[in-house]
Simulated assay, not measured.
Amino acid sequence: MSGARVRSGRTTDGLRSVVVGESPVGRALAHALGAGRVVASGELTPEALVGADVVVLVGHSGDFAAVRSRRASDRREDIVTRTTSDVTRAAAADVGHVVGVSSAMVNGAVPGRPVIEDDEPARGEVDDGIVGDLLTFEETFRDAVAAASTRPRATILRPACLVGPGVDTLMTRHFEAPRILTVRGAIREWQLVHVDDVAAAVDVVVRGGLVGALTVGPRRDGAPDVLSAAEVLRVAGMRSVDLPRASAFGAAERLHRLGVLPAPASDMTFAVYPWTVSATGLHAAGWSVSRTSEECLRLLVDQVRGRVGVAGRRVGGRDAAAAGATGAAVAVLGTAAIWRRARRGA
């Protein structure tokens, strides 16, 4: 978790929130919730939390570059320390509700995956990728709440693919590639949710006293609001490249071991396999989104315009030109020089 700071504030109708997490997602949540002051994480004094109705801990930071700049072991040690401290201090200040912002990625993505329901057990892979961080965050969050002397209500929010100002994830970087990667024979629908609507979900959760794990995503006509692969290509103005599973994942894993690609091959499953959420509990409680999946995708495409990335790694200059020239392989494998390096390491 990128929990360096705390932004606190009061919404226009009086709900006082404290958002822990100096990151794109944290800043966006703080803005949407009417945040004011900034307090360094680890310094949550009782005075800073007086009158707070909810403390929001940001586990999914939306800061891909910062996450990948540190070793997984260091990141997770920090997640455990900060999350435990923040939950403990919130409980000691008699805050009535703590909300952890995670991701539905903890539920995993596999071919033909059913829609993810609320309170579905986490089943993602624990490796050196972002999902391992999120699993660590959720486990620590639950343990800290259970150990608190004054136990607040606790909720984990698991959004679909997040978009918003400055939000930078492996999923948003997927749209920086010259082409959209698909795995042969797999059907991948896209569901996107804006961080402002996640903030609105926090409000609904606190006012309704909702607890447990809740998925967060738009619905349309009584079903999850998703875009087909064809609709994504149309809206994004992109073409796809369809590769066999063995080729895509095998090469990606080899290049990750060489340090060429910043994320493990397991993280790539979320770009090529479905992880649509139901958001049943939130919608039943009266929550609704301000932006559809298509509107979120249009915002995302505008946000990443002009950037070029290959499998999560941003490239520029001659690298970008070479990436464009490699055609189909660019979605996963990068330049011919990377291929040669991979073969030497075989």
Rank of each mutant, 00 (worst) to 15 (best):
E295A: 15
C296L: 04
C296H: 05
L297G: 01
L297P: 13
L297C: 05
R298I: 03
R298P: 02
R298M: 02
R298K: 10
L299H: 13
L300N: 02
L300Q: 07
L300R: 01
L300H: 02
V301G: 01
V301I: 15
V301M: 10
D302R: 14
Q303I: 00
Q303R: 13
Q303A: 15
Q303D: 15
Q303K: 05
V304W: 00
V304A: 01
V304Y: 00
R305Q: 15
R305N: 12
R305D: 15
G306S: 06
R307T: 10
R307N: 12
R307P: 09
V308W: 02
G309N: 08
V310G: 04
V310W: 09
V310A: 10
A311K: 06
G312N: 06
G312E: 02
G312T: 06
G312H: 04
G312A: 04
R313C: 03
R314Y: 10
R314K: 05
V315E: 04
G316Q: 13
G316C: 08
G317W: 03
G317K: 05
R318P: 11
D319C: 05
D319E: 15
D319W: 11
A320E: 12
A321D: 14
A322M: 11
A323W: 06
G324I: 05
G324E: 13
A325D: 10
A325V: 06
T326A: 12
G327N: 06
G327P: 05
G327Y: 03
G327T: 07
A328V: 13
A328Q: 12
A328H: 11
A329I: 06
A329M: 13
